[in-house]
Amino acid sequence: MLAITLLTVKRMKEPAFFIFLSIVLVISYFMADLDPLTQQVSGDSIFAQVLDAGRSSQPLLAASFVMFIVCAVLGGFLGASEIPRDISSDLILVILSKPIRKISYMLGKYFGMLIICSSLFIVSEAVIYVTHYINTGELFSLMLMLKQLYLLLAFIPFCAMIIMISCFTGELAAMIVSFFYLVFSLSFSFIPIAMAMLPKGVAGAAGGVVFILYYFFPNFIFYFQDFKMFGLVFIMLLIYSFSLAAIFLAVAVGRLETRDFSKSSDL
């Protein structure tokens, strides 16, 4: 598994990674001095209130939020092509001919992708902190910096989701499907919160149907909400991230176990 992880991480030496890294550096430099996210959205909106409930004194920086999206999209593009590329180049047949189980192969790819996405995000956060220091002469507080790194947790299910999709589709399709899945996930995130605000029974059966649909998408809003740094919500966020990742990876394993890797096979 470690060998596969290292093989995946080697993509960080490819020109594509450096192009993406440059994009991340430039965007994070220009985003560094944005106000906290709570000041970027309308105070009356549900999103604003989920973000800022006065439970913690460390707000989520708008720059971190933007960089999370950017890193997720770019990391997703890199990761989505991993397994389909191995299949199309027959590399997977070479790898699986060695004493490596399919689950180890997939977990190796997953951790490799997690490292790539996390690296992009950590670098972008570092640029934000340094740029802020250069511009204002002040460092962000340690707790505030830690709070931004909570977004790293969101990459745990996100990378698993990308790996799952790439087990079902080809290289390009995996990128496109992953992007739309991310967009749908973000748009579906508010549904349960909005439903909970309505009087009981108003949404009726349609509400139930929408809720079932909602469970097919990870809710990334949970990672942006305001909560105490180390409390129940943090523990639940950890459980949520790992359990969701485990579900996505279980689906991916099921697919890899039954998939025919010969070139003439259907995708």
Binding site: A53, Q225, V233
Partner: peptide, 20 residues
Amino acid sequence: VFLLYFLSEAVLREAAVANI
């Protein structure tokens, strides 16, 4: 894993709603 997912999702959802 599914049980943990539903439990954590419900708690996080309640936490998000409580913020409002």
